[in-house]
Amino acid sequence: MGTAEGVDLRVEIAGIPLKNPFLACSGTFGNGREMSELVDLEALGGLMTKAVTLEPCAGNPPPRLWETRWGMLNSIGLENKGLERFLSEDLPWLSGFDLPVWVNVAGFSVREYVEVASAVSRSGLAAAVELNISCPNVERGGAHFSRHPGETAGLVARVREVVDIPLFVKLPPLTVGMGEMARAVAEAGADGLSLVNTIPAMAVDVERACPRLGNVTGGLSGPALHPVAVHAVWEASGSVDLPVIGMGGVWSCSDAVELFMAGAGAVAVGTLNLVEPRAVPRLVEELRGFMSANGYLTVTEMVGLLRRKGWR
C-alpha cells in the first residue's frame, strides 16, 4: 500500500480513540470469541457486543432468519447468557485485546436497563455503553421506546446518572422523526448515537401460508437497509451536535464513505460480518486506497462533508 502512505485512519469518537473507523455492529460479531478464530480482533476499530440483559434470555422461537433479496430478516430475540456471566466470562476476555468495546445494553424495564448499564460502567472494562432501545424483536424495551421520545429521554436520563463512560443510544430508522428523537436523546445526556438498528419487517411463506419467522416479524438488515441508514445519519447529524456511528448494510468502502459524508464519525459493519468474517480488515485497506486516490489525509475530512459543501 505504498501509494496510501500518509493516510491517517485514526478517528476519535466521544473521546474514544479508534485505530480505524470500522466497528463491528452489535449482534453480528457475538462477543468476539467465535469470530476470533478467523479474524484478528485488534484489526477492528471497535466492537459492539451482543445485547446484554439482566437475566439470561433464551431468545425467540425458530426460524429466526430469512434471507430476502439484498437483505436479511432476523428475530433472534436478544438471546444471551445474562449480565452476570457476561461480566465474568466475556468482558474480561475481551478486555485482553487492544480494542475499545461498546457494550450493547438491553432490558425489559427501565430498572433493568439501569442495572445492567450501571454494572457495565462500574466494571471499568468497557469503552462505552450502547443503549439498545430499538430492538424490533422484543415486546417491551424494544420498539416501544422508539415511538415515544419523551419516554426515551426519561430512560436515557436515568441511565446517564449511573454511567461514567460515554453513553450511545441506538435508534431505529423508523421513529417519530429522526430530528426530534435525536434532540430528545441529546438533551437527556447521551454522548453519541448509533444509527441505525434494523427496520421492522416480515416475510410470508405463501405455500404454507405462514410467516417465515417463528416470531412472525423481525428486523431487516443488509444492503437493503443502507440508504435508509445514510438518510438517518444525515437527518440526525443535521439536528444535533452529537457524534454518530453509522451502520446499516455497509458492504463496501464506498458504503462507509457515504455514511461519513452524511455525518457519521465512524461506521459499523453488521450483516456483512456473517458472510465475510474478515470484512473489516478488507474495508480498512479499501478505505486506505480510496482516501489516497481521492486526496483525503484523514477520515475527519470526509465526516459531514456534504453539509460543509453547502447541501441541506
Binding site: G27, T28, P63, W66, E67, L274
Partner: peptide, 14 residues
C-alpha cells in the same frame, strides 16, 4: 437449519 454466520456468533440457527 437456515444459518447466517456458521460460527455461533449470531444465534440465528436456534
Amino acid at each position: 437449519e437456515r444459518m447466517a454466520c456458521g460460527l455461533g456468533a449470531c444465534r440465528g440457527c436456534a
